[in-house]
Simulated assay, not measured.
Amino acid sequence: MSEQSRDPTVFLTGFPGFLGSALLERLLERGDEPVVCLIQPQYRSQAETRAETLRQRLELPSDSIQLLEGDITEPDLECGDALEGLSSVHTCYHLAAVYDLAIDLGLAEAVNVRGTDHVLDAAETLDVERFQYVSTCYVSGRYDGVFTESHLEEGQSFNNYYEATKYRAEVLVQERMEAGLPATIYRPAIVVGDSETGETGKYDGPYYLLRLLLEQPRACSLTVSLPGSNDTELNVVPRDFVIDAIAHLSARDDTVGEVYQLCDPTPLTIPRFVDVLASAMDHRVCSVPTPKSVAGPLLGALERVGLPAEPATIDYFDHPTRYACPNTQRALAGTGIECPPFESYVDELVAFVRENPVIGSDAMV
């Protein structure tokens, strides 16, 4: 980080990622600056370009966004003496994580678990007044039932290493909270693009289904359905709802020590989700009943021939968990911030994918 004229007050990880960039803009809009963003060296050019775009759009001085190269997988965030120079920081937002359903255990452990532990250490070293942590609803794993903000350690199994390591990371955060760290935890469901513009940073999760259907003829597009999927809910939320909620809740003193699930309180079932996508795409979609033991290898075969498919997504076609957010609903009551129904913004998601076919699905690591 180069010499700056003002000392930063906010420390942010996860920039220039999709959620991190949107949250940074919101923090700057409300006057929470200067912000120092921990970035990986390989993303410096992208971070510099995005930071300059934000500065110009918001007409802010050059030191409003400060970039600090580091690595959350290393002790002291690999910042050396620079970390000690951030004593002016009073709030830490930790968003950096690897979101990839097919991630291997070693990388998931390094980034999601040890990385979070290292950021917690840094926050305690800096004696921050607030620690804002972005977790995920899927710390639930395959919990059989309704999972709320009061649930965490339930003896659950997990679909993949992403879920398992995000669970372990939140356990670390909650342990520090119990020891006195003034923290707030946010658990988004499956985050998709902006509800107004459809914009997204990468095509993962439900986008595999959307893009696979778009690759097929309008007259007849095929997908699979698993036994029991008729009752399975797919809980998706648009980016702007997540950012609106975090920005609002993080500014309140009464949210310290709380957990907020940022989910859709009335999500669609898998069959209904497919029907809504089909209508938005103007495709006739046929869901073929398929045993799970066949569906996974089938998606793997499609992936190998270059089609947009991810075998790991099949676990969400019979995911047993339903999500509720009573704490979030109480906290946001009267604010006008609520998750819009998927039907209200699906057209924007589909239009964005059609207009931007080359966006990838790789996680930032």
Rank of each mutant, 00 (worst) to 15 (best):
M1P: 02
M1R: 09
S5K: 10
S5I: 10
F11S: 03
F15E: 13
L24P: 03
L24G: 03
L24S: 01
L27S: 08
D32T: 05
D32V: 04
V36Q: 10
P41I: 12
A51Q: 13
E52S: 04
R55Q: 11
L58P: 01
P61I: 01
S62G: 09
D63V: 12
I65G: 00
L68Q: 04
G70R: 00
D71S: 14
S87L: 14
T91F: 04
C92N: 09
A108D: 07
A110N: 04
V111H: 00
V113Q: 02
R114E: 10
R114P: 07
T116M: 00
V119S: 03
L126V: 10
L126H: 05
D127A: 15
D127M: 09
F131I: 13
V134A: 13
Y138W: 10
R142A: 15
F147A: 05
E149F: 13
S150Y: 09
S150P: 04
K166Y: 06
V171Y: 06
L172R: 11
L172F: 10
M177G: 09
G180V: 07
L181A: 06
L181G: 03
Y186P: 08
A189Q: 09
A189P: 06
S195V: 09
K202R: 15
L213K: 05
E215L: 08
P217N: 07
P217G: 11
R218N: 12
N235M: 04
F241P: 13
D253A: 15
D254S: 09
T255I: 07
V259S: 01
L262C: 03
P267M: 00
M281P: 01
P289D: 14
P291K: 15
K292S: 15
A295T: 09
G296S: 13
P297N: 06
P297R: 11
R304N: 14
G306A: 14
L307K: 11
P308S: 05
A309H: 03
T313F: 00
T313C: 15
I314F: 02
C325W: 02
T328M: 13
A331W: 08
E338P: 04
E343H: 10
V346M: 03
I359E: 01
